[in-house]
Design a binder for these strands. Structure first.
Length: 415
DNA sequence: TCTGGGGTCCTAGGACCC
DNA sequence: TCTGGGGTCCTAGGACCC
């Protein structure tokens, strides 16, 4: 086991909001929120009023009447997020990026060049501040999990180093909610047995935890509370699924609504799969009803698919199955399509539109080949003229755009 | 004042195989 | 014939993360 703390967790502070305050100096020091209908990010000044990401815009305004909403410069978020991660790359190739604004780095192999992990972290923070104008917090520890907790404790705009001798003392007074994987449900369950700090968690028998939370979560939390944690960084991980969803407000559950929406969602998903030659075997749909309860249906095919209309048809079959099982639900508030069991990587040329075993989806039928050709044609046109040049069912989505496409793209993982 | 969108992982039951 | 055990895959739902 390593005896020195060499893992850094770097996390840009209130990232989208900080970028807006960087771009428009008149916003600095003020409570701002990125978004509109829903808050995508809030500045620390806004958080002081209780404004949080994911909160409806109306509620945020209630909490903070002087809150300033800004639309969002999504391409700048991508550029600056990438630039911040590049600063880490200057120190070590062992970088695991976990989102647009967050990454781990293991500096064990470069301390002889750049100094102690603490010095490296200080340099990184200074460079991000000077070169990009953004505040970033860093936690340094012996394990990933502890480094992540340390960066949370360091926020905003701070650095916390947890030396090996002080780990348990550092952990044991912190609330369990700071642990990765402890959300509202787990927190509530732990509270029922009187566990609120990581120290109390550590003193709880492992068997009791696995009974309460299941084997995986119980083992994990027990190990983490004693700081026994894998420290290996995963520098390249492939995506395991790709999906798209659309909130609909309250719409009647009829074909006129469902069919064009599914076609649009299928297009978003399938074109990404085709672009990376990663067709998938399992298609999952999610239908959310008026009361926000949701149901999923999935099917695993013999052959992977990435053709838009075939994905839309399979999704349509699954959605019809959901509605048949819930005949009293007349209103839907969201539709989603996801494809998983992605192929490692297929040669695009060899991929044929295979699908369900029934007649109409057989490979090699004229219909199937025609669709395959149509997808390829659309992909080519978009390559030359942009995404908006041609598409499926966009007309049907007039008012349904609650979130800009640029934001959706930011959230996507590289396949 | 019913809250967006894109992801990951786990669980539990059933089917099926050895 | 009955009983038992282990493993894998599929499906539906849930919790969690950014």
């Amino acid at each position: 086991m390593e005896t020195t703390a060499t893992i850094l967790h770097a996390d840009l502070d209130a990232f989208y909001a900080s970028v807006e305050q960087l771009l428009d100096p008149s916003l600095r020091g003020k409570p701002i929120a990125v978004g509109g209908g829903v808050v995508l990010a809030a500045s620390y000044e806004a958080r002081a009023f209780g404004v949080r990401g994911g909160m409806p815009g109306r509620k945020a305004r209630e909490l903070c009447p002087q809150l300033i909403f800004v639309g969002g410069n999504f391409s700048e978020y991508q550029r600056l997020g990438d630039a911040a991660i590049k600063v880490l790359d200057d120190f070590t190739p062992l970088v695991e990026r976990i989102s647009i604004d967050e990454a781990f780095a293991d500096v064990a192999g470069c301390t002889h060049l750049f100094g102690s992990p603490q010095e490296i972290a200080t340099t990184i923070r200074r460079r991000v501040r000077q070169e990009l104008g953004l505040p970033i917090s860093i936690g340094v520890a012996r394990t990933k999990h502890l480094a992540k907790i340390a960066s949370q404790v360091a926020k905003p705009n701070g650095l916390v180093v947890v030396d090996p001798g002080t780990e348990l003392a550092f952990l044991h007074n912190l609330p369990v909610g700071l642990m990765w994987g402890v959300g509202p449900a787990t927190k509530a369950r732990l509270a029922e047995i009187g566990v609120e700090t990581i120290g109390q968690l550590a003193r709880t028998h492992r068997g009791a935890l696995t009974r309460l939370l299941g084997p995986a979560a119980g083992e994990k939390l027990s190990a983490l509370s004693w700081n026994r944690d894998p420290r290996r960084l995963e520098t390249k991980r492939r995506a395991r699924s790709a999906g798209a969803q659309s909130a609909l407000g309250q719409k009647p559950a009829v074909a006129r609504v469902i069919v064009p929406t599914l076609l649009h969602l299928a297009d978003r998903v399938a074109s990404r799969l085709r672009a990376k030659a990663r067709p998938g075997r399992t298609v999952t749909v999610r239908v959310r009803f008026a009361d926000l309860s949701a149901v999923t249906r999935s099917i695993t095919l013999d052959q992977p698919i990435s053709a838009t209309t075939m994905l839309a048809e399979i999704a349509g079959d699954l959605v019809r199955g959901v509605l048949a099982d819930h005949p009293h639900e007349k209103t839907i508030s969201l539709l989603a399509i996801s494809v998983s069991h992605l192929e490692e990587s297929a040669e695009l040329q060899l991929e044929l539109p295979l699908g369900l075993a029934d007649e109409k989806h057989r490979p090699g039928t004229r219909k199937g080949l025609a669709r395959f050709g149509a997808d390829r044609a659309i992909d080519k046109i978009r390559e030359r003229f942009g995404k908006q040049a041609v598409g499926y069912g966009t007309v049907a989505l007039e008012a349904a755009r609650s979130v800009p496409d640029e934001f959706r793209e930011l959230a996507q993982k590289e396949l």
